[in-house]
Design a protein around this nucleic acid. Sequence first.
DNA 1: AAAAGCCCCTGGATGC
DNA 2: TGCATCCAGGGGCTTT
Length: 271
Amino acid sequence: MPELPEVEATRQSFADKIAGSTVLCVRTGKPLRWPLACAPARLVGRQVLGVRRRGKYLLIDLDQGLLLVHLGMSGSLGFALHLPEPGPHDHFQIVTTRGTLRLHDPRRFGCVVYAESEASETVRKLLGKLGVEPLTDDFCASRFHAGLRRRQTAIKQVLLAGDLVVGVGNIYASEALFLAGIRPTVRAAKLSLPRATRLHAAIRDVLGRALAGGGSTLRNFSNANGESGHFQLEAMVYAREGQPCRVCAAPIRALRQGQRSSFYCPQCQKA
DNA sequence: AAAAGCCCCTGGATGC
DNA sequence: TGCATCCAGGGGCTTT
């Protein structure tokens, strides 16, 4: 599940396999976060050109239109030549000439939305305010710092908001802030250029390593082939309240920010 | 424009 | 064992 590394690992696990296929039939389950926005039958016969990612959205390009897929909190995709009978939490699937793609999402915070084109209102609404991709060269430290200086709220919240930089979810936000030695409550605007630069590097480091590990999250995750990440990335602070810091042994602390939990080491992240 | 809250939904863990 | 409560990796929308 889904921060950027998991979404990207999911994309990589089925993009090449589904590309070039033709949609044979579509099945929908319970309603997801947003309606599909077209009659499922209209997708039949369309060709799948490829799969891209923007932030935590997957974009499945069709020869006419595209599907925006978001995994929400509990979603995962499966892709195989044959999948077992759909279960009660399988809420969308397309059978193609190369295999079946299925969204499994118990909490149904995820979505599959059809858009006529990338210029459509739907795409603009969902992707229009997304920030820069952290693993590309567009993510540069000085521009990151400049963006932070305009924000008066806590740095952790700015990372999660996704309008400055995308893909950093609740786990990796805490982890990146730890690596950078920055307390999650610090006002974004107060970060110096050197500290913002450290954070910039920490974000790339933690996301990059997680992706290299196959979307190794700290909990359960499996890509569209049902393979789990390597779990090579162990959390330094996330969900470790009261446990000793792996660097200095001070007890890790937890707090709530914007209805989400944050974790930090009071010793390694003094400010 | 930016920030803060609210809410969507189900399942698993915990506590009584 | 049964039931209530709390918590969960996201993010769009509304209100301030």
